[in-house]
Structures are given as structure tokens and as C-alpha cells.
């Protein structure tokens, strides 16, 4: 695989709750430490990136997180406005048309429109915004991500003239160019998240035709004990040994599960994912993101 961070757009997706935002934050950190100027785009209902890095919310404006990493919370209304202004050039026309009560009502009702403008904004940052070298997209979960990424081709089936069609072609060209974009899948070492990642990989190949970056197996439990070590404990002699042995056994059960799903991802996706270790901590913030970034830095070739 060629240099991952030399690309313009990196999409991170997977089943809900698998840690997409965390992986996106850690990826951005690694890219930043390798000299790239990175913008993280968040599309979720609630903004999370600044909290993960321990900085103040940036909202719909691009906000600086570290000297090399910025983030922006992409929201449909603001994205619509920016897009319209870009095409219309004149604010007065925008106000007359897009701030018309009837039009707002109408536009809000059709979700594909908000997907168009949100993906449009992400692609604009990747293609035209020279403040940044790389855009990391913290994408929605599986189904929504698929419909988001296939928006350009869906729209192009309906429209083939005008600025919308032109922009959709540019977006599609960016997504389908393996030198400029890649998509990474995130899963947990559990049945459903791994199945969804495998399904999504097939769908992405068929529908979106994006190049695939490395996949991630998050919250991985690497083995800590040999079977011999656990059974060597003379549990009947000491309740403390009993407690320790129970924890060790529970841990190794999880480790075995992790190994099983690592193997499953490797066979079904045709290559091994990068294992992101489970972090034992009460909270999840800047420190934990930095820890994960260290792991990714070792795993992702420069």
C-alpha cells in the first residue's frame, strides 16, 4: 500500500459504537506527527472531536485542535448555505432563494440534499482547501456511510447537466481515485461488528469503488497469560489467588475471542487488520488518543 497519509481524503467507517471517532482522531494525530496538515470532518449529530482532544468545541467553523490538526463539525444547514453561496456568488440571491421559508422547509425534508451538501463540503476541503494536506472523514455508521458515499453516483443517475452534476462528477472522481482517497473499516472483536465490516467491504467494492486503506480491529485484547501460568496458581490455598485467577481467565477468554475475530477478518477481508488495543481507563480523552496514535504510528508504514 502506498503512503496512506499522502492521500487527500481518508474515510473512517464501521458499525455504530465500534470507535470510529477514536480511530479517526488517532489517525489524524499520526498524520499530523508526520508533517501533514490535517482536517477532521465530523458528520455525526453531536460533535465529539474537540472533547476527545480536550479542546473547546469548534462548531460549524474550522477550529484548531493542535498546530497541525483542525476539526470541523459538518452540519446540513451551514453546509447548504456555504455551497449555495459558492455557486450563486451573490448573498442577496442566496437570501431570496435559500432563506425563503418555503424553500427551507422543502429542502429540510429531503435527506439526500443534506447528504449532497455535507459530502460536498468534505470533498471541497479535500480538493480545494490549501490550508490542509489531508482530510480525515469520521463518517456515519455502515448503512448511512454507504448511502453518503454513493450520493454522487445516485445523483448522476438523475441529473446530467448544471453545476450539481459537475460537482458530483468531481466528487466521484475524487472518491474513485486510489491515489487520492481511501476508506478504512473499523470493527470490534465481536460477531456483528465484524460481519458488518465484511458486508460493507463488499458493498463498497460494488457501489462506491473506493480504494481501501488499512482496516482496524478496535478494543483488541492481546493475550497476557499462558494456560500453564493460570493453572499453576494454587487457588484452593488463597482467596486472593482465586480472584486473580478468575480475572486472568476472564481476560484470556476475551483474548481468545479477539484472536478468533482477528483471524475471521483476515480471511474474509483478505488481509489482516491493524489491532488497536483495548485501553483500560475510567475516561477517554487526549491521553488515550495519544496512546492509540503511538500504536498506529508503529503499524502504518511511512
Amino acid at each position: 500500500m502506498s503512503d496512506l497519509f499522502a492521500r487527500r481524503l481518508l474515510v473512517v467507517t464501521g458499525k455504530g459504537g465500534v470507535g470510529k471517532s477514536t480511530v479517526a482522531a488517532a489517525l489524524a494525530t499520526v498524520a499530523g506527527s508526520r508533517g501533514r496538515r490535517v482536517l477532521i470532518c465530523e458528520l455525526s449529530a453531536r460533535e465529539r472531536m474537540p472533547a476527545l482532544f480536550g479542546t473547546r468545541p469548534s462548531g460549524a467553523e474550522v477550529g484548531l485542535i493542535t498546530p497541525r490538526i483542525s476539526s470541523v463539525h459538518v452540519r446540513p444547514n451551514e453546509a447548504m448555505r456555504e455551497y449555495a453561496l459558492m455557486v450563486l456568488k451573490f448573498r442577496a440571491i442566496y437570501s431570496a432563494v435559500f432563506e425563503n421559508r418555503m424553500v427551507r422547509y422543502f429542502l429540510r425534508a429531503v435527506p439526500s440534499l443534506s447528504e449532497i451538501v455535507m459530502l460536498g463540503k468534505v470533498c471541497w476541503h479535500a480538493l480545494q482547501d490549501d490550508r490542509f494536506d489531508l482530510v480525515v472523514l469520521d463518517a456515519p455508521a455502515t448503512g448511512h456511510a454507504l448511502s453518503l458515499l454513493s450520493t454522487p453516483s445516485t445523483i448522476l443517475e438523475l441529473v446530467n447537466e448544471g453545476p450539481l452534476a459537475r460537482d458530483m462528477r468531481a466528487m466521484q472522481a475524487l472518491l474513485e481515485d486510489a491515489r487520492r482517497s481511501a476508506v478504512s473499516l473499523v470493527a470490534l472483536p465481536e460477531e456483528m461488528p465484524v460481519n458488518e465490516a465484511v458486508d460493507l467491504a463488499a458493498q463498497l467494492r460494488k457501489v462506491v469503488r473506493m480504494a481501501r486503506g488499512p482496516d482496524f480491529l478496535n478494543a483488541f485484547f492481546p493475550s497476557r497469560f499462558s494456560e500453564a501460568a493460570i493453572s499453576s496458581l494454587k487457588k484452593d490455598q488463597d482467596p486472593n489467588l482465586e480472584i486473580a485467577a478468575r480475572a486472568a481467565r476472564a481476560y484470556e477468554d476475551r483474548a481468545a475471542l479477539s484472536a478468533f475475530y482477528l483471524e475471521k477478518m483476515r480471511t474474509e477481508l483478505g488481509r489482516p487488520p491493524i489491532c488497536v488495543p483495548h485501553l483500560f481507563s475510567e475516561s477517554f480523552g487526549a491521553l488515550q488518543v495519544a496512546q492509540l496514535a503511538e500504536v498506529l504510528d508503529r503499524e502504518i508504514p511511512a
Binding site: V87, L88, V97, N100, V103, V159, G162, L164
Partner: peptide, 12 residues
């Protein structure tokens, strides 16, 4: 308004 919108979407 419709003409302006059509600038984006095409009349079709």
C-alpha cells in the same frame, strides 16, 4: 426561486 434552484439541479 425554481429557476435559481434549477441552476443547481438542472431543470430535468
Amino acid at each position: 426561486v425554481a429557476r435559481t434552484l434549477a441552476k443547481f439541479t438542472g431543470a430535468q
